[in-house]
């Protein structure tokens, strides 16, 4: 082998292949001089490109709406007018556009689903509607489900603003997670009971992450967990740290709503 060329022996290849069973880390890549071999450099670029595209591809709410036949949807925007603003101003991504807020349908809703683009519109396009459908199916007819909100340039806390404006007791935000180098299509689900914009914090939420079948969490499993969490949230009147230990317990049936359920609407 001359210096500067990559020539892993078959013995080495066998060893690194065996080691890769234990980790997805990019180990045993070989060298071109001091640098990465061309093949591995391009592999890294491909992973980064997928992540960048997921962050910057525009959200297409009509794609999600079309996959929710028979369910009313409402499109809203956050106060962050474009992607550049969204990435630099988390405060604006947490707040509804004032005009959109005024047009939200109020009602005596038990739960509102907010489909938010977050940092991966691809995750939302592929996985959000199936999770909404599977979850609503399990909730059954006694539960008052609000129109599904499709939110652009939105962060998790935008759901607090939505639920508060609509008078919904609980909010489920389905949002595109920050893309990594191994997955650019992970969907997160955040459940919050009686949220109050500006007061509710992340400690008041329960989260399922990495929803992306077949490699990550499947739709039915995610829906089952969500319905279980919603049931416990209604029993206890809270979500967040107080509900944390219940995450792995089997889903319980949704109990009857409390007599005066629902957050303050002022």
């Amino acid at each position: 082998m001359t210096e500067g060329q990559v020539a892993l022996s078959s013995d080495d290849l066998t060893m690194w292949a065996a080691l890769r069973r234990h980790t997805q880390a990019r180990i045993g890549l070989g060298r071109a001089g001091s640098a990465l071999p061309t093949h591995h450099r391009l592999e890294l670029q491909a992973a980064h490109a997928a992540a960048r595209d997921a962050v910057h591809s525009p959200f297409a709410p009509e794609v999600v709406a079309a996959a929710l036949p028979g369910m009313p949807t409402v499109r809203v925007r956050s106060a962050a007018g474009d992607r550049l603003t969204y990435l630099q101003r988390p405060d604006l991504g947490r707040r509804l556009d004032d005009i959109d807020r005024a047009h939200l349908p109020g009602g005596d809703w038990d739960v509102v689903f907010v489909v938010a683009d977050g940092l991966s519109s691809r995750a939302v396009h592929e996985h959000a509607a199936p999770v909404v459908r599977a979850t609503v199916e399990r909730l059954g007819v006694g539960v008052r489900v609000a129109p599904v909100i499709l939110a652009e340039q939105a962060r998790v806390a935008l759901g607090d603003d939505v639920a508060h404006a609509m008078g919904a007791t609980m909010v489920v935000v389905l949002i595109g997670e920050r893309p990594g180098m191994s997955a650019a299509d992970s969907l997160g689900a955040y459940l919050t009971y009686a949220p109050l914009p500006g007061t509710t914090t992340d400690a008041d939420r329960n989260c399922l992450s990495n929803i992306r079948p077949p490699l990550g969490l499947g739709y039915e499993v995610a829906a089952g967990k969500l319905v279980g969490l919603m049931g416990r949230a209604r029993e206890l009147g809270l979500t967040g740290v107080g509900l944390k230990d219940e995450l792995d317990s089997p889903p319980s049936p949704l109990p009857a709503p409390p007599p005066e359920g629902g957050p303050p609407t002022g």
């Binding site: 880390a25 180990i27 890549l29 001089g33 001091s34 640098a35 990465l36 890294l44 990594g180 180098m181």
Partner: peptide
């Protein structure tokens, strides 16, 4: 430095061991 510049635990990209070889060279 991280393997291939990709940290699979913290989900971010940093310098790689190869990058350090480059800098020393």
């Amino acid at each position: 430095c991280t393997p291939g510049g990709d940290d699979i635990m913290l989900n971010y990209q940093s310098a790689s061991y190869h990058d350090a070889l480059y800098l020393r060279e």
